[in-house]
């Protein structure tokens, strides 16, 4: 019988989650994916160690007082299935991103970048005045908005 939760197990959890967080901070989706997998495993270990350790929780095989807690094990099974599904979806997304863009980097928000740029140039948006028709709007002529909407690859 294992001794249940001990220092080694918690260090393992810490290392798994720590490495996972480091990978999450990367820009590339495939590294982020690995980070998610590591964190998921760390958290699953944490849940397992949350219950009492002991013998197999089957009535008739082991003594009731010495049984391990079956509930965290059931929860971990559910959590593993969920993490598995999410990992598969993330893989699909990063493949799709690579297929469309040639890389799987997560870029910044386009509109945020534009607003930062406008703020740096201290521009006042002409739309805010709302007096002139849109056809005379200098923003319409100078800086046509990037095509929004979808399906324009």
């Amino acid at each position: 019988m294992s001794a249940g939760a001990n220092l080694v197990s918690f260090v393992t959890i810490g290392v798994l989650v720590g490495c996972g967080v480091t990978l999450l901070l990367e820009r590339s989706l495939s590294r982020i994916l690995l980070g998610v997998v590591l964190i998921g495993n760390g958290v699953n270990l944490l849940i397992v160690f949350g219950g009492r350790s002991g013998e197999a929780p089957v009535v008739g095989i082991s003594d009731e007082a010495a049984m391990s807690d079956a509930l965290p094990q059931a929860m971990v099974l559910t959590a593993i299935v969920i993490t598995f599904g999410l990992t598969a979806f993330l893989l699909a997304i990063s493949y799709r991103s690579w297929y469309l863009n040639g890389d799987d980097e997560v870029p910044d928000d386009l509109e945020d970048q534009e607003i930062v740029r406008r703020a740096a140039r201290r521009e006042v948006s002409a739309t805010d005045l709302a007096t002139e028709p849109a056809a005379d709007d200098p923003e319409q002529i100078d800086a046509p908005a990037p095509p929004r909407g979808e399906g324009r690859e």
Binding site: L24, V36, V43, M75, F89, L90, I93, R96, S97, E150
Partner: peptide
């Protein structure tokens, strides 16, 4: 549809929410 724009914004959404789920799972444990 997996268009370029939706994959870009979707990956942010997916990542943030997976992280939130992990934190929730930690608290459950």
């Amino acid at each position: 549809n997996g268009t370029r724009l939706r994959i870009r914004t979707g990956s942010t959404y997916v990542m943030v929410n997976i992280l939130a789920s992990m934190i929730f799972l930690i608290s459950v444990g």
